[in-house]
Design a protein around this nucleic acid. Structure first.
Lengths: 191, 191
DNA sequence: GCACAAACTTACTTATTAGTAAGTAAATGA
DNA sequence: TCATTTACTTACTAATAAGTAAGTTTGTGC
């Protein structure tokens, strides 16, 4: 990989880094692993991300961007709230297929070992994701698509913990349990 | 630490190991960390657990024992199902205070890096925990303490994922969110 | 066509990792 | 009491970790 565009390589490192965090955990892979898979040298990874914490920060930043964009898209999309929520669920279902766990779940394991700067950004990311789902639920309730007795915020906490740990559990007990959780949530929301 | 009883040292390693897995993650601590904290040499830890995977296996075994005993106690206890469920919830609430995440959540991160032998035992452990809660919910429903429309098994999946990811989320957003989830679950169960 | 910066590689360092081999001190058991 | 076992320590090894300094190639603006 000689002289590829910056953003290509940097992007590739970010995506592989995120995949590894979600597949094996942050402390279970090294820069050498990344370099080997991307067919470059160790030092090339350090060129883009001097320290491993910088890589982590970059990955969190990327997820903040993704969810900021997703939130904007959903704000403007004129589709049912149910379809919006399904989009979120599909993202999590896909994780199970890739043998990944959700990024927030993965981060929560590493959290105590992260520098404060990164922790702060993680807080931002989590806030973003929760807000996104909260808005979908709120909209769905207002439009009569969803029915739930808790506040949208509390219902978001319940559903997002179902999703996050559902993906984790599926690793151990199989995907069927994730699908069961998924169905149950939608059933309850439209009862 | 010269000539302490086997079980004392071994037990201390197991407990510290579990704490570290739940606090910083399996791949984020070393035998040197354990040795230092227990004021012994690196090789002493290897004496009790030759490889790190053996330590992991020992920790999973210990949890299997704990939950087997807990299940037996609860089987025989003549207290309300609600009290039994509260015992489970208290265990998880305590984790938040110790800056730990739940052992199953922690394991799910490491899962892909574990040897098959350990994975199998993890499967056993998860089955045990789920069965324990399922029985509590089933009993509570039969006695009219709890009300829920799903099967006990599905309701267990929902609640346990709420709990596990609730503890993880609380690390990032604060304990208040865990308490919110807790209250909401009990409210829904007795509605 | 030349300076310069971007995107690397080569070649290293230092620390830490898991793990082992050999020795020792104290308790146990016959 | 003497051999054996248990629970270690001492002293090491080989591999891997993160990270860096210095050099090289390649594209770009002027």
């Amino acid at each position: 990989m000689v002289n590829a565009k910056v953003n290509d390589t940097k992007e590739a490192i970010l995506q592989l880094g995120a995949a590894l965090i979600q597949q094996v955990g942050y402390h279970a892979f090294s820069y050498a692993d990344i370099a080997k898979k991307l067919e470059m040298k160790n030092a090339a990874v350090h060129y883009h991300f001097p320290g491993k914490a910088d890589l982590y920060e970059g990955i969190v930043d990327a997820h903040i961007n993704t969810y900021t964009m997703l939130a904007k898209e959903m704000e403007n999309a004129s589709i049912p709230a149910k379809a919006k929520l399904e989009t979120i669920f599909n993202r999590y279902a896909h994780l199970v297929d890739c043998d990944r766990i959700c990024i927030i779940g993965a981060i929560s394991t590493d959290y105590s070992t992260l520098p404060e700067k990164v922790r702060d950004k993680v807080g931002l990311l989590v806030g973003l994701v929760l807000k996104l789902v909260e808005k979908i639920l709120h909209e769905g309730k207002k439009k009569g698509e969803f029915r739930f007795s808790e506040s949208s915020r509390v219902q978001t906490l319940l559903i997002m913990t179902n999703l996050s740990a559902g993906v984790q559990l599926a690793r151990i007990t199989g995907k069927k349990d994730f699908d069961t959780i998924r169905k149950s949530i939608f059933k309850q929301l439209s009862s």
